[in-house]
Design a protein around this nucleic acid. Structure first.
Length: 418
DNA sequence: TCTGGGGTCCTAGGACCC
DNA sequence: TCTGGGGTCCTAGGACCC
């Protein structure tokens, strides 16, 4: 059996941990630059706040209902996630952390266990240890565990947060209850296509001829169909090193000047280089893109990107930043108002087995320098930067509703009045 | 005024090899 | 009239996830 455990309204729940006055109050969390709604408490959902809504469009609604608004605080969410995952990892030796708020556990050899009770034990322990509410679905396959999890969430009174699918009858009932668009692996396009042939729930999908599914949805769809039918097909996946790493950001306002954009791109390049070093990878290619504000159709539009082949496999901030600057010069055009840029590094290789170049190789001093800079920045919070970055300003993001980093910064600890 | 960020996998077709 | 067979690698595009 597989268990899928997922944190309820995770970001909103994190905000409540250190601010219990938010309990039972509507809470929303916004994306970078305080742009869109990316998390909602149940109360906010009930008030009709749509997922993904631009904050400025729903300002009135937020004010009218006194909804508590937060900027995203990834330092807090990341740390709370690690705590929750750590606790849950005690419930099975085989697991897959699927996202910041979801984890699969494989429950092999649990035949004599009351799995519903087992789930309730998890909920209880995580709640007592972290204050984060979770929901649990347990079933013979991963995709059915997803279905069970949805049921647990939808009927909290009846399930008390845990729902187990363990009979063919429950499989059928669960699948018939699940709308086709809510199935894990069925997105917008497939939903439309399937509805077009009168497939509106997950059960009907499992009844489709294999050949049709194979032809229209490739091998991926076929696997999903099998897995949903109760034949274990999708297994836990190993945590692999990433194949691409990206840092992409909208600017807090539109920039026209090359100098301003150079500074932003240099900062993104150094962030992406640090991510590379953290997973002990080097890159062969850096891809840089730049574009204007797509939502401003009244303004002239321009978007372009460029792949830059590195002279050798590298994770040096200086080499990658240099490449990005060269690329930027090539794609930047005067006279546009730019809103977003990003760097994606690709062709990643382990930094222990670098292929030596025939003509050019990295200055061996870079490696030592990077290690030193990383160590300094870890202890002193990003004090060492390249000259191309803006040294004076730390945050270039709209974050008007940011909570404290309660769990990762000593000077932001929660204060208790006696 | 204002609209997020970061990933994965699969397939078809082109370029190339012998 | 008639023009082989078998393979790999790379890329762009399309789908999906949180």
């Amino acid at each position: 059996m597989f268990a899928l455990i997922d944190c309820n309204n995770f970001y909103a729940s994190c905000e409540r941990v250190f601010n219990p006055s938010l309990n039972n109050q509507p809470v929303v969390v916004l994306s970078n630059n305080d742009g869109c709604v990316i998390a909602r408490s149940n109360e906010a959902k009930a008030l009709g706040i749509p997922m993904g809504a631009p904050a400025f469009q729903i300002k009135q609604l937020l004010n009218k209902h006194n909804i508590h608004v937060f900027s995203s605080n990834y330092a807090l969410y990341g740390d709370m996630s690690a705590r929750v995952m750590n606790i849950l990892s005690n419930f099975s030796p085989e697991l897959e952390v699927y996202s910041i708020d979801e984890i699969f556990l494989k429950l092999e050899g649990f035949n004599l266990y009351d799995l519903t009770q087992y789930g309730w034990n998890m909920i209880d322990l995580v709640k007592r240890s972290t204050s984060i509410p979770i929901s649990i679905g347990i079933a013979p396959t991963k995709s059915l565990a997803k279905v069970a999890n949805k049921i647990a969430k939808k009927f909290p009174e009846r399930t008390k947060g845990t729902y187990v699918i363990d009979t063919p009858l429950k499989v059928e009932k669960g699948l018939k209850w699940t709308k086709i668009g809510d199935v894990w692996g069925i997105g917008r396009q497939y939903q439309t296509k399937l509805q077009g042939i009168q497939v509106t729930n997950a059960w009907q999908f499992t009844q489709l001829p294999n050949e049709y599914v194979r032809k229209e949805m490739s091998i991926v769809g076929l696997r999903l169909q099998r897995d949903l039918s109760g034949i274990p097909t999708l297994d836990l996946e190993e945590v692999a090193v990433k194949k691409n790493i990206a840092v992409t950001r909208s600017f807090e306002k539109m920039y026209t000047d090359l100098e301003d954009i150079r500074e932003r791109v240099a900062t993104y390049a150094s962030k992406v280089s640090l991510k590379l070093r953290k997973q002990n990878s080097c890159c062969q290619i850096a891809y840089l893109f730049l574009h204007t504000n797509k939502h401003r159709e009244d303004l002239p539009q321009y978007a372009n990107g460029i792949s830059i082949k590195m002279p050798f496999e590298t994770n040096s901030t200086m080499v990658i930043t240099n490449a990005a600057m060269t690329g930027l010069k090539r794609i930047y055009r005067e006279g546009y108002q730019y809103k977003k840029a990003g760097i994606i590094v690709m062709g990643l290789t382990p930094d222990t087995q670098n292929q030596l170049g025939l003509f050019y190789n990295e200055d061996p001093r870079h490696k030592v320098l990077m290690q030193t800079i990383d160590r300094l920045n870890k202890n002193c919070f990003d004090q060492v930067k390249l000259g191309a970055q803006d040294l004076s300003k730390v945050w270039k993001m709209q974050q008007n509703h940011l909570s404290k980093r309660y769990t990762t910064r000593l000077n932001e600890l929660i204060e208790v009045k006696v």
